[in-house]
Structure formats: C-alpha cells, structure tokens
Write a protein that binds this DNA or RNA. Structure first.
Length: 580
RNA sequence: CGGAGCGUAGCUCAGCCUGGUAGAGCACUUGGUUUGGGACCAAGACGUCGCAGGUUCAAAUCCUGUCGCUCCGACCA
C-alpha cells in the first residue's frame, strides 16, 4: 500500500470526546471515526487490524472444532419471550416495527436463535457434540456507551454455542473454548487473565471472563499473586473480613440507647458512641417483585449486588424508597434494624451475610428514629431466613485457596465463557434422543469475544507516549518504508520502491510512505500509527550504502542497503510477539 | 434515569461575565524558500456560533425549551 493512495487521516491533537488513551489513539491514528455516540466507522487501516484479529479468532475456533455460521441480526420477539429474556434482558433490546406494525428485535446476542436452530435440526445424540460460532455485529441499547469501541451501541462479537449430550461432555466443550481463548488473546499480543465470573442474567453455573489488566477497565479483578485464584469482584470470595466478627456470648439482653441524628455507620463509630463499624449491623431494604426484602451485613461491608442477584435468582430488584422502608420498619434509613422484638411482623425473607454468623455484642438500629440497640446476638435476637455470602471482598483479605493476601486491580473484559446447562435447550425445545431412546435437552455452553473491544484493548496495553505499538500479529502493516525525500527517480526513492516491491512480493505487508512530507512528519505519523518496523531511507545514510531499520519503541540499526529486504524479513519472521 | 460539564472553521480552543462588523493556532488551497524528528514567508478559501422560540433598535453573548456530546453514578452476557 502506498500511503498517498490510502486514507489515513492522522490527528496531531486528540479530539475532546476521547478520554482514555486507547480511544484517543484510535482517532489520532486514523483508524476509526465516530458517526454518533457508540457508533463508529472503521477506516481502512482500522479495518485491516479488525480483519487480522478476526482471522486469528477464526483459525483458533476452527482448530477447536467449532463451525462457522451467520445468524440474522433481526429477530422475532417470540423466541425471546420463550426463553424469558424478553423481560430479563429488556433493557438492552432494541425494538423495531415493519410496515405491518409487526414487532422485531435487534439481536444483542444469539442464544435464542442458535437454540431454535438446534431444536429443529438436532434430534439424535449421534449429531452431538456440535459447536457453532459466528463473527457478527451485535446491537445493544447500552445505557451509557463510552470509551470509543469499549462499550458501544453496536459492536462486533464472536459468539459460539456448544451443544452436548451431558454435563461431562459440556465440560469438555467448555475447556476447549477456554483453551482456544487463551491462545487467541496470546496471539493478539494481549496479556489476558482468566478469572472466575458471575453468570448474570444469561444463566448457567460456571463462567470465566478473560480480563486485560488496565487502569481504565470497567471491572475489578480480585486475584492472588500465586496465580491460583482470580475472580471478578462480583464473584470473588475470601476467608472473610480481616477483623473478625465478635462472637462472645451469651451476653446481656438488648438495650436501646438514644442516638439522635445518627444516620450513618461512620457517625455511630465516632465519639461519643464509638461503636466500631465491624460491630454494627447494616440493614438494607430492597424491593424484589414488589415485595420488600431485608439484607443484613456487617457495618464495614458492602453488599455485592451480583451475589444478591444469585441468591434471589433474579436481577429484577432495586433499593426501597424511604417511604417503602418506613412502611415496613416504621423508621427511616439510619435507624433500621431486624431485631425480632422491634418488628410489627417477622421479616420473611430475611437475608444475612455469612460474616455475621454467630455474631454477638453487635449494635443495630432500633426501628425507632434516633435510637439504636446494643448487645445484639444474631442467633438469639434476629430471625434470619437465608444465610448467604453477600459481602464484597476487600483487598488484603486472605485468599480462600492459598491464604495469601488478595489484591485488586481493574481489567477490560475481552471474552467470557459460560457453561449454560439446559436453560435454553429446555425453554426452546433443543432436545435429542439418547442411545436408550430417551428424550433429553442438550447441555449448552456459550462463548463470547468482543472483537472490537479486543482491538481497543490491544491499544490500551500496547502504546507509548508517541502512539500505538502494534504486536506484529495484528498490525495494519508490519513494516513502514520511509523515504525521507520523495523525488521520482532519485537514488533514495528508487531504493525505497525496490524494497517495497520486494517485501510485497515476499508477502510481507508493507506501506510505502510516499507522501511529500518532511521527515519529522513521517516519523511522527509512523510512530503514531504504530507499525512494528520502519525502514528509513535518506541521502545521508545511503551515501554510506546504508538504510536504517527501526523497531517501533526499540533500537535503531544501520543496515547495508542491499541487505535491507533480507534483514526486514528476518526481523519480521523472528520478531515474535514484538512487545519489546 | 439522577448529578456535573461542554456545543463557535476539518481539529484544538478564545470571544459570552459587561449585547454592537465572528477570532487564533493547527489542518486545507496557491506561489516561493526549505528538507533527518510535526518548517518558514506571502496570499487565499473555509462559519445557519447545535437547533427552536423569546427579550432587545441590536443576540455567539441574556432568558426558555430542545437536541447532541463527555464525565460520575445507577445499569450492563
């Protein structure tokens, strides 16, 4: 490709709309342009990178035995009603109407479609296992698109769906995808960490997310430095709070004391009260399907809403309003409690975090504004109906696997694998006859990779102050040939053309910067766009019979002009990951 | 949806408070000088000041509404 014939609109300054470095570089390097919030056009070089990533994904999916298909983006709402996600995934569904006023939805994902296909086509255990995948544009009504391609209304995803005869067989399919994902991200030059993940509204019982560590990531990862434990914070567990819960008892009976104006844990912890947060019980009220549900936690803990959703079996809940709280407990937030003797009627259900088990000598609200109760013993004074792990793990707590202190860092989720079970095959009728002639639902798994997000994650991880540093495997071009003056027929230009032609003939993707620009502009641009290698050809070095070979972000090498092609080939072929 | 901020040339922004001929840098066009790290000189082109309404002799500027963008939160396979 000749630079002058391509379309590579680089920007010296970054547009105000871009906040994070990878978004800025996508725009500055001329890879994408915005049409509207969360909607982007891929320009020629951005598309080349996208195609490279897609090719890696295809190769690894094919290698793992998955079969490529292509499903419709426009889908009938009926299959969503059948699976139940017309309600549970309602927020992300776009609805459209045709001229007959018939409703359709735009596919945010394709479990319903592929399961409908399997329902019609797979009838025997002899046809299993099968794993279908596609690389396709997904459309989701994101509440807040942000960070360029990271969270967009429309994005390209690779999604795969496996069908197996049994749970054991499904586990094999799951592991194949897990391994394929590990290879895919490694080949893209990414360090991606598999972490245990919550399965969310998609359902299922086992899931891992592949996270690219980055300060700008939207997820928090809890991990043990041993490498033996890592989990999304929504799922993470530890050995428990660093400060143990007081459990001495039996002690004195509950005693009410005045706490005028106290509405927060911190306020009650301060003088004159001095009740340490871990000796307080936090009482939260949520509304689940119009019914109030009370949750108890230690005062120094935060409710993990993902864990709560798992406990409820639903993500359809919200915090109660002050009025709803008052109707239930006869007090306002700040003075709430679940002590049986302060209740009009027993609370059912009443959830409590496992860290409170056996707690004694605790303090909680008295369900009378301006009063609290001390000397509370959980087992004696509060009628808990559900004991569950509901707290959010904190950095420094001890790993449940190794006992070492846990750390927390942020990450970008580039892929997720789920073991789904039979939720979709049952609701959508994907059943087969086993070898005994018995009808059984297929055991499913689903596996996603955010292809466009992966592209941006590579930039987020591979850049310096001058621009992108593409791993060679996904670079738009592997080598940029930079003649420092562009005069047709000059020795410099003749050599540049020759190197360009020879590299191209050998299948090495080269871009020839034949623009009439000053050397500084060309150097800046080639580094901004991030080509892994650059061959600079100028009169000074050519007078010594040399050209300059430079690795992006690396060392400059003088190379004999007649060896330039061979040296580039060597560098490119031997360059490996190129993360330098 | 709640909170905050921003919409002026292709990009980055000034002008708005205190109403009175719409600006700068970069980019673009032409000519010239330059040519190893985002050149210089000269000339030029580029604007419904997001949109609508209102106040006023007069609105980029003040008021109201609306749309869009960004950030925080909520939300999210």
């Amino acid at each position: 490709m000749r630079w002058s014939q391509s379309f590579l609109p680089t920007l010296r300054e970054s547009p105000a709309e871009a906040e994070i470095i990878s978004h800025q570089l996508l725009l500055r390097a001329g890879l994408i342009r915005k049409l509207a919030g969360g909607l982007y056009t891929f320009l020629p070089l951005g598309l080349r990178v996208l195609r490279k990533i897609e090719a890696i994904v295809r190769q690894e999916m094919d290698r793992a035995g998955a079969l490529e298909v292509l499903m419709p983006c426009l889908q009938p709402p009926e299959i969503w009603q059948q699976s139940g996600r017309y309600v549970t995934a309602a927020d992300v569904l776009y609805h459209v109407q045709d001229r007959a006023k018939k409703e359709w939805v735009l596919g945010p994902t394709h479990e319903e479609v592929i399961t409908t296909l399997a329902a019609g086509e797979i009838s025997s255990y002899r046809q299993l296992p099968r794993n279908f995948y596609q690389i396709q544009t997904k459309v989701r009504d994101e509440i807040r698109p942000r960070f360029g391609l990271m969270r967009a209304k429309e994005f390209i995803m690779k999604d795969a769906y496996s069908f197996d005869v049994s749970d054991e067989a499904a586990q094999v399919s799951y592991q194949k995808m897990y391994d394929a994902y590990t290879r895919i991200f490694a080949r893209c030059g990414l360090q991606a960490l598999p972490v245990e993940a919550d399965t969310g509204v998609i359902g299922g019982n086992l899931s891992h997310e592949f996270m690219v560590p980055a300060a700008t990531g939207e997820n928090e990862i809890v991990y043990c430095e041993s490498g033996r434990y890592a989990a999304n914070i929504e799922k993470a567990v530890s050995q428990g709070p660093l400060i143990p819960t007081p459990k001495t008892g039996p002690g004195p009976a509950p005693e009410q004391f005045p706490t005028p104006g106290v509405q927060t844990i911190d306020h009650l912890a301060a003088p004159p009260y001095g009740v340490a947060p871990h000796c307080q019980i936090k009482t939260l009220v949520y509304i689940v399907q119009s019914q109030p549900v009370v949750v108890l936690l230690r005062g120094d803990d935060q409710l993990n809403e993902a864990k709560f959703a798992v406990a409820l079996g639903s993500n359809q809940f919200r915090p109660a309003t002050a009025a709803e709280v008052f109707a239930l407990l006869n007090a306002h937030p700040g003075s709430l409690g679940a002590v049986a003797s302060t209740l009009k009627t027993p609370l059912n259900p009443l959830y409590a975090d496992a860290a409170l088990r056996g707690a004694a000598g605790m303090t909680t609200g008295a369900n009378a504004d301006g009063f609290h109760l001390r000397h509370i013993e959980l087992d004696r004074d509060i009628r808990v109906t559900h004991w569950v792990d509901l707290r959010t793990v904190k950095a420094g707590e001890l790993c449940a696997v190794t006992g070492a202190p846990l750390k927390i860092r942020r990450g970008i989720e580039v892929g997720q694998v789920f073991k789904l079970g039979t939720k979709y095959s049952e609701t959508l009728g994907a059943r087969f006859l086993d070898e005994t002639g018995k009808q059984r639902p297929a055991v499913m798994g689903c596996y996603g990779i955010g292809v466009t997000r992966t592209l941006q994650a590579v930039i987020e991880q591979c850049h310096d102050e001058n621009g992108i540093i593409w791993p060679p495997s996904v670079a738009p071009f592997v080598v940029c040939i930079t003649p420092l003056s562009v005069v047709h027929g000059s020795p410099v230009m003749t050599l540049a053309e020759k190197i360009y032609a020879e590299l191209s003939a050998q299948g090495i993707e080269a871009i020839l910067d034949d623009r009439q620009e000053r050397p500084g502009v060309k150097f800046k641009d080639s580094e901004l766009v991030g080509f892994p290698w650059r061959v600079a050809i100028g009169e000074k070095s050519l007078a010594k019979g040399e050209v300059e070979l430079k690795r992006r972000g690396g060392e400059l090498m003088a190379v004999k002009a007649d060896q330039a092609v061979a040296r580039v080939r060597e560098a490119v072929r031997g360059g490996g990951g190129g993360l330098g």
